[in-house]
Amino acid sequence: MWFKQLSIYPLNKENLPELETLVDKLVEAEFKPCMGLDWDSIGFASPVSFSPEMVFPAQNIWRIALKKEEKVLPAAVVRDILEEKINEIREAEGRNVGRKEKMELKETITDDLLPRAFTKSSKTEAMIDTQRGLLLINQANANRAEMLLTKLRDALGGLEAKLPRTQQSPGSLMTEWLLNGTAAGHFELDSDCELKGLGDAAPVVRISHQDLTAEEVVNLVKNGKVVTQLGLCWQDRVRFVLTQDFTLKRIQFLDMIQEEAAGQGDDMQSVTFASQILMAEALGDLLAELVHHLGGWLPE
């Protein structure tokens, strides 16, 4: 229900689809299970457990989900069966099996096992904030976030989304805040950070559960290291780790927000509805202030 990580894509809010159009397009791109010789399958699915609808709207916040299913075929199983087949040929025909024939046997074995293989599935959720013009994906891994964005673009026939590029880089701002021993505005330094020296082979220093204003921590920055991840707290409402790529990790919505959501009703739908609004509002306001400290978005 509550996002734990975040990739951010600013949208052109003047050119977003209508809710009904989004629903129809996602139904057309709906997830279908892996069949036959397919290794995987990917498509949109219901983002909530209590409804089959492809979009869960809460005021101006639309939640969607991309589901992926993959076949699991352990290499050791294929290898063991292949070895048995090779031994059978040696004993029956008295000859060795060449590399090309081994590859053909391996492909045949794989094709035979694939329809009976186990599957594993995963789901990536996202929210479209139509008022602020943001696509918020519950994923900090760039490839997985981009997969959802790509599939959404494909389903809609296009979507004006861009990478979150700002006037000042997040790494520069985080380094500045750590060097000053304080963050700006409604942000406060938390107790975790990651620093790296210059150069590709430079060592990485990870600090956890420590006072980030301590002299030994600040000296790392003074000696040339830059901050690549920084733990922050915003308005005593959200804790998170900001990265140099402008993703958020280890997001925690603190008790104030969660209690407010829980007080909106007893059933799952009411709580999810309230949580979605409160979560999007908190993230939207947090990001707006953070972008302000970063000098604003870079123009296209």
Results as ranks from 00 to 15, higher is better:
Trp2Gln: 11
Ile8Glu: 07
Leu11Gln: 12
Pro17Lys: 10
Leu22Met: 01
Phe31Tyr: 14
Lys32Trp: 03
Pro33Leu: 12
Met35Ser: 15
Trp39Thr: 10
Ile42Pro: 00
Phe44Cys: 11
Ser49Asp: 13
Pro52Gly: 04
Val55Leu: 10
Trp62Pro: 00
Lys68Asp: 09
Glu69Tyr: 08
Ala75Phe: 06
Lys85Leu: 11
Arg90Val: 12
Ala92Ser: 15
Arg99Met: 05
Asp111Tyr: 06
Thr119Trp: 02
Thr119Lys: 06
Met127Phe: 11
Thr130Ile: 03
Ala140Asn: 13
Ala142Gly: 00
Leu148His: 12
Arg153Trp: 12
Ala155Phe: 11
Gln167Cys: 07
Gln167Phe: 13
Ser169Arg: 03
Ser169Phe: 07
Asn180Pro: 00
Asp192Lys: 00
Asp200Arg: 00
Ser208Lys: 15
Gln210Asp: 13
Gln210Ser: 14
Leu212Tyr: 00
Val218Ile: 15
Lys225Leu: 09
Lys225Val: 01
Lys225Thr: 04
Leu230Ile: 02
Leu232Thr: 00
Cys233His: 06
Cys233Ala: 11
Arg239Leu: 10
Phe240Tyr: 01
Gln244Lys: 15
Gln244Cys: 07
Ile251Gln: 00
Gln258His: 00
Glu259Gly: 09
Gly263His: 14
Ser270Met: 08
Phe273Leu: 13
Ala274Asp: 11
Ser275Trp: 01
Asp285Pro: 04
Leu287Trp: 00
Leu290Trp: 03
His292Asn: 13
Pro299Met: 08
Pro299Gln: 11
Glu300Pro: 15
